[in-house]
Write a protein that binds this DNA or RNA. Structure first.
Length: 606
RNA sequence: GCCCACGUAGCUCAGGCGGUAGAGCAUUUCCUUGGUAAGGAAAAGGUCCCCGGUUCGAAUCCGGGCGUGGGCUCCA
């Protein structure tokens, strides 16, 4: 298979630590924007402490586009309280209070924070601060454990806004008390603040949930259930095109495609390890009176393994690439569901490559190459790589240290040899092995994994996989799990936002709307429709008794790529007057138009 | 699952400090046949998310659910 030239992904603008960190973990950044936002967080805490003297404060770092601060309030607060807090912040900002750095002894600092009843700060000093010196910052009466740096004075904080409140567990731990997090945004100037608020508004309009409803792409209904979207005809059309494209490309690259059931006996997942290590996401098994236990599959791998084992495999057959767009059922916690990005059943563009250890590197590389090819054709031009590795929690992972190292080396080497840059995600691995994740962002700049490539030595062992080697001996294959285009749901969600509903012609649910100007052109319009259909294009006729302007407006709202407008002149000359969704207008012979659109579709131009 | 907000017609949203609701768009019918982003008229459309409580009376107040959105934890 051809290794196409690899484009480097465009890095995300201003990448920030993806995970919130406690004092001591988070970098004390010199970045002026971070300093500004961090200082605004202190300002927020100062205002909160004036208004709610018995509140306890946790941590307050800068984050993407802004900052937050966590508090424990004696009485819960809500978004309606933010106005008052913000006014108090402005007042303090006006007062021109300096940010004063002080270094205290450990003992002195503990004493200070104890005196103020700030238990969380005391805990942080005890757990996180090493040595005997503790750096604190004072802003008027407000005292915070902090490395800084900060702006000189509160007066430099001019363009900020509190956005929302949310619950957040202390130190990111579900077992710890939940604090009230206040999010805000802060910028050097009012103009930038304005622009950012504008961006948030725009993001709202691009949101796939909104467009999905407006363009009738998909829906959710509580009678069906949360996290279980229904693909409407328009959305299903796009999905069908995507699936055809994906499957055809995989077949061309030496994959075989299979179809396997959405359920299997629970024992299969006992053997794979999912029943134990993945239990929290699995639906309760369906139990029958005769003792049968069927499980909705959370992953496809065991089914594909069964197919692998349906014959004695020779080294000559390897690599064997078994692919399927298979449904995966995962009972995600209700609070985590997000539109199409996080659902309870999704269809994964999945494949399992069974190969010899020698073939591993090539298979990893070609998996990456395939993901890049899909990205290029589909227009996924903003993503970053994450090499997801295990952490030290022994009970979470299968296999030996050494196997993990080999697998990880294969992945990082593959990336490096392809000249790709990546970040590390410690603790983000699958339980059976490390993976390369392709991270994309949604309209609100939230990061999601779409494509993924994983190396696995565990499942081959658990299922005792083998192949017959050249010398006749039985050997163990390695597995590569890969989702090249990711899940259909996430992919779709990404594409909706990427194109703001104006999908490339090959994907668009309706490629051409034929608009007769008066009833006199109806017959000709119908012939135009037939001609376009014959070229396998998706066509509609708009012969409502409405004015042409109205029909154009409606087609435009649906972001239909082409409007073929036919009046007397066109009917006379076998022409169509074509208006595209960008507003361009041309007059052309019907045949020329058919040919040109068919070609655009065939080439999957965007 | 936890925190905050929200849930009124198919959609977007008004209204309502307790006396059973309204607009625009969409839908249906009629009129209109108009050359590049909304022609006109009429009609129809609502257990005001659900269940309980308070009350002479609840869409409105209270309690409990469910769902959606944004966070947290977690992840394709």
């Amino acid at each position: 298979m051809a290794e196409s030239p690899l484009p480097s992904p465009t890095p995300h603008p201003d990448p920030l630590p993806s995970r919130e960190r406690g004092y001591g973990d988070h970098e004390s950044s010199e970045d002026p924007l971070h300093v500004l936002r961090h200082s605004t967080a202190h300002l927020l805490a100062a205002a909160v402490m004036e208004l709610y003297p018995d509140a306890k404060y946790g941590i307050g770092p800068p984050v993407q586009d802004g900052f937050y601060y966590d508090f424990a309030f004696s009485k819960p607060i809500s978004e309606s309280d933010l106005g008052a807090i913000e006014s108090r912040m402005r007042r303090i900002a006006q007062e021109d209070r300096p940010f004063v750095k002080e270094v205290m002894s450990r003992h002195q600092a503990l004493d200070e924070f104890r005196k103020r009843g700030q238990d969380y700060k005391v805990e942080l000093i005890n757990d996180k601060v090493e040595g005997d010196e503790v750096t604190v910052y004072r802003t008027g009466d407000f005292l915070d454990l902090c490395r800084g740096p900060h702006v000189r004075s509160t007066k430099e904080l001019k363009a900020f806004k509190l956005l929302r409140v949310a619950g957040a567990y202390w130190r990111g731990d579900e077992k710890q008390p939940q604090l009230t997090r206040i999010y805000g945004t802060s910028w050097p100037s009012a103009k930038e603040l304005e622009e950012h608020l504008k961006f948030l508004e725009e993001a709202e309009k691009r949101d796939h949930k909104k467009l999905g409803k407006d363009l009738k792409l998909f829906m959710v209904d509580e009678r069906v259930g949360p996290g279980l979207p229904l693909w409407l005809p328009a959305g299903a059309t796009i999905r069908r095109e995507l699936e055809r494209f994906i499957v055809d490309e995989e077949l061309a690259r030496g994959y075989v495609h299979v179809r396997t059931p959405d359920v299997a006996r629970l024992d299969l997942y006992r053997q794979s390890g999912h029943a134990k290590l993945y239990a929290e996401y699995m639906y309760p098994p369906i139990r029958f009176e005769d003792g049968e236990e069927l499980e909705l599959r959370p992953v496809n791998c065991p089914h594909h393994i069964v197919i692998y084992q349906s014959e004695l495999r020779s080294y000559r057959e390897l690599p064997l690439r078994i692919a399927e767009i298979g449904n995966n059922w995962r009972y995600e916690r209700s609070g985590t569901l997000i539109g199409l990005n996080r659902v309870r059943m999704f269809a994964l563009n999945d494949a399992h490559i069974f190969c010899t250890p020698d073939q591993l590197m090539d298979e990893v590389k070609s998996s990456i190459d395939l993901a890049l090819y899909f990205s290029r054709v589909l227009g996924i031009d903003e993503f970053s790589y994450r090499l997801s590795t295990r952490d030290d929690a022994k009970e979470k992972w299968l296999g030996t240290e050494e196997q993990w190292q080999v697998a990880e080396a294969a992945l990082s080497e593959a990336l490096e040899s392809m000249g790709q840059k990546y970040e590390r995600g410690v603790g983000e691995a699958a339980f059976y092995g490390p993976k390369i994740d392709f991270q994309v962002r949604d309209a609100h700049r939230r990061e999601f994994t779409n494509s993924t490539v994983q190396v696995d030595f565990q499942l081959p062992e658990r299922f005792d996989l083998e192949f017959v080697a050249e010398d006749g001996s039985r050997q163990r294959p390695v597995m590569v799990h890969r989702g090249a285009a990711g899940s259909m749901e996430r992919l779709f969600s990404y594409l909706i936002e990427r194109y703001v509903g104006a999908f490339p012609t090959w994907l668009h649910p309706v490629q051409v709307v034929v608009i007769p100007i008066t009833d006199a052109e109806r017959d000709y319009a119908k012939r135009v429709v037939e001609r376009l259909r014959k070229a396998h294009l998706r066509v509609e006729i708009d012969d409502r008794s409405e004015r042409m302007q109205r029909k154009i407006r409606d087609a435009q709202a649906r972001k239909v790529p082409y409007m073929a407008i036919v009046g007397g002149r066109e009917a006379e000359s076998e022409h169509v007057n074509v208006r595209d969704r960008a507003g361009g207008q041309t007059d052309e012979a019907l045949e020329a138009f058919v040919e040109r659109v068919a070609e655009e579709v065939a080439e999957r131009r965007r």
